[in-house]
Every structure is written in C-alpha cells, then in structure tokens.
C-alpha cells in the first residue's frame, strides 16, 4: 500500500505554455493576411440576390463599387425608403456616376485602366428602372465591364 501513497505526494509537472504565443501568432498572421477592411460604411440596405453561375472577382484593386438599395433603417426617417445610390461614403445621384468613374479611373495606373470592373451591389428589391439608368450612365462613362454582385445559391433562394 505504501507504494501507492508515495506517488500521490508528487504533483504533476505543469504543461508548458511556452508555445502558446507561437500558435496564437500563427492564427494572428493568418487573419492579418486574409482580412479585408471594409472600406465604406453602408448607408443602404444590401441584400444581394442569389445566382449559381457566378465568377469571382480577382484583383480587388481593379474593382469599383456602386451600392444601391433603400437607406438603412436608422436613416429612413431622414431619407425615406426609396432606393438610392451610394458612392464611397455618401448618397449620390445618377449625375455623380460619370465623375465617380472618371475619378476611379484616374487612380489606377494607365496599363490597368481597361481592366477596371464596376461591381454593382444592388439590393434585390430594387427595381430595374434605376439599374437601367445606372447602366446607361456607366455606358456614357465608358465603364463597360460590370459585375452584378450576387451570393452563391439558387435564385430566389431566401426571401
């Protein structure tokens, strides 16, 4: 019996936590590399429609975004519920599209300008009238490569 009693007196050696920072740092670097900071605060609702035949937009630096949708709940008292266009951090009208595209084009270097894509991030409740007007403005601004931003899924997947 005394054999067993002797063992209980010794405590287990503590598990070394010296490698814990390494593991955490590994995770940290992973998230630092993959993270993309949201560039704009959304002023409009943005529930994207669903589609299955989608292509990924490579090279974020070549993509400009146009948001369309009804203003978010907290701004509806001020701006109503009619769908609006958002460029950068503010509401815009159709007349602002041309200057916006020109400005975006100016920021890219010359070789990359033809590769510029405009990503239309529209809420699924928006009517096509506004989208058509927007497309017309884009054509006038010579921004012909567009992408209708969607989520992968069956059309009309979730209401």
């Amino acid at each position: 019996m005394s054999k067993f009693r002797r063992k209980t007196g010794k405590s287990q050696p503590a598990i070394s936590t010296a490698s814990l920072p390494d593991i955490v740092f590994m995770l940290l670097f992973f998230f630092m590399v993959t993270t993309v900071m949201r560039e704009v605060t959304l002023l409009v609702q943005n529930r994207k429609p669903f589609a299955t035949e989608i292509v990924k937009l490579e090279r974020r630096s070549l993509v400009s975004y146009i948001y369309i949708g009804p203003p978010i709940k907290s701004l509806q008292a001020q701006f109503g519920t009619e769908p609006r266009i958002q460029l950068n951090d503010q509401f815009a009208t159709l007349n602002d599209i041309g200057p916006y595209i020109a400005d975006e084009r100016e920021r890219r270097n010359e070789a990359e300008r033809p590769l510029m894509t405009v990503s239309i991030k529209a809420d699924k409740t928006v009517k096509m009238g506004l989208i058509t007007d927007l497309k017309f403005e884009l054509r006038r601004a010579q921004a012909l490569k567009i992408n209708y931003s969607t989520i992968k899924g069956k059309p009309f997947g979730e209401k």
Binding site: T35, R38, I54, V55, L57, K135, R140, Y148, S149
Partner: peptide
C-alpha cells in the same frame, strides 16, 4: 487576434459578369 477576428469580412466578391455595349 480577436481584433482581426472581429474586423475581418470573409466575403469574396463574386457575381455575374457582363459587358455593356459602348455608348
């Protein structure tokens, strides 16, 4: 780590690409 976990948005931009006719 927690800061980056919170701020990260994992959405890859994807959608249907189209080419508009020139104006």
């Amino acid at each position: 780590l927690i800061f980056f976990l919170v701020t990260t948005t994992m959405d890859v931009d994807s959608g249907i690409s189209r080419k508009l006719p020139p104006y």
